[in-house]
Amino acid sequence: MTAAPATLVASDLDRTLIYSAAALDLRMPDHEAPRLLCVETYGGAPLSYLTEHAAALLAGLHRTALFVPATTRTPEQYRRVHLPGPAPRYAICANGGHLLVDGTTDPDWQRTVHRRIAERSAPLAEIRARLTATADQEWLLKERVAEDLFAYLVVDRARLPEGWVRDLTGWAAERGWTVSLQGRKIYAVPQPLTKSAALREVAQRAGAVRTLAAGDSLLDADLLTAADRAWRPAHGELADAGWTAPHLTVVPRTGVAAGESILRAFTAATEAAVPAEAPSV
């Protein structure tokens, strides 16, 4: 089977393809649980996993498509992840703020992103001021800035007041920012900072004529909308919101099993697009 670079597969990582121990959602008896492969360590301890079957599917996907990780992680956080198969030629990090080419940030793309944010969104300092002024130390665990592009809070979900995220969302939208709650993290991201914009840039550079995508959070919605075909798991923000689209397939699985199902769907879709080899004569 020959490679098919005309197909680009872009996927979110956390809670889409890879999962922390808390997010694995292994609902079967222990003796039936799948074997897992650790793909990330942090502080000397294992952090993120996928199933061994998913690992084999991901490694094989490189033969039929251009695989592009598309993550909200910073480049530093992304580099902790060691995915099966060849190192991706392109990677979308910081929700589209960084486009890595062979592991290095592309400076032209970075300048383009900063210009778009300056033109369309309120300054990061204004957003951070609102976050720190309204967050309560009773439930706020950490406040962070990623790459001078966006801010996020790590919170105690059980103590987070009902309506706080909704109120922040409305306030931020008036200033050109998007708010997303993912697990214990609340992200505030400028609206021009999108995975879909970076996806279009990669597709143009690579000459891709078809794009497939997967994701689980509201920050992935634009990525899924921009793709020709898209998948999401039955968990996450998009599932909670009932988000759908005509070209979207909902994988009826949750946790790490959903990641494996998404990779099976990617594999089937890309293999179907590869022309059969001509018979020898």
Rank of each mutant, 00 (worst) to 15 (best):
R200E: 00
H82I: 09
R130Y: 12
A265I: 10
D220P: 13
M28T: 04
T132M: 01
E260R: 03
S280Y: 14
E76G: 07
A122L: 10
E40V: 09
T112F: 01
L212H: 11
R73H: 06
E126Y: 09
H98S: 04
G242W: 15
E143C: 03
A230S: 05
L140Q: 06
A188Y: 11
L24T: 15
L140V: 08
E143Y: 10
A221V: 08
P190Y: 03
Q77I: 04
H53P: 05
G103M: 07
V256K: 00
L100W: 03
D167R: 15
P88D: 14
D136A: 04
P75G: 02
P75V: 03
L248C: 07
Y19T: 02
R79H: 03
D25F: 12
D102W: 08
F67G: 11
A265S: 11
T225Q: 05
E40W: 04
A54Q: 06
C93I: 08
A265N: 10
W164M: 01
P88F: 15
D136N: 08
H114P: 00
D30T: 13
T105K: 08
H235W: 13
L181N: 14
R205F: 02
L37N: 13
A257K: 09
E237C: 15
R166P: 07
R253A: 15
T132F: 06
E277F: 13
E147H: 02
G44W: 12
R229L: 15
A6H: 05
P252W: 15
Y49M: 06
R116G: 04
L131I: 08
R115T: 01
A265T: 07
A221G: 12
Q137F: 07
G163Q: 00
Y49Q: 11
C93Y: 14
T244I: 11
H114L: 05
V39H: 03
A55M: 01
Y152I: 06
P88A: 13
P5R: 05
L17W: 09
Q191K: 09
R63K: 03
T169A: 14
S261A: 11
K195H: 01
V9F: 02
R200I: 00
A22W: 14
F67M: 04
R130N: 05
Y90D: 13
L24I: 14
D148L: 01
A87K: 15
S121L: 02
A276S: 14
T169E: 13
L124D: 10
L66Y: 02
P46G: 13
V9H: 01
L24F: 14
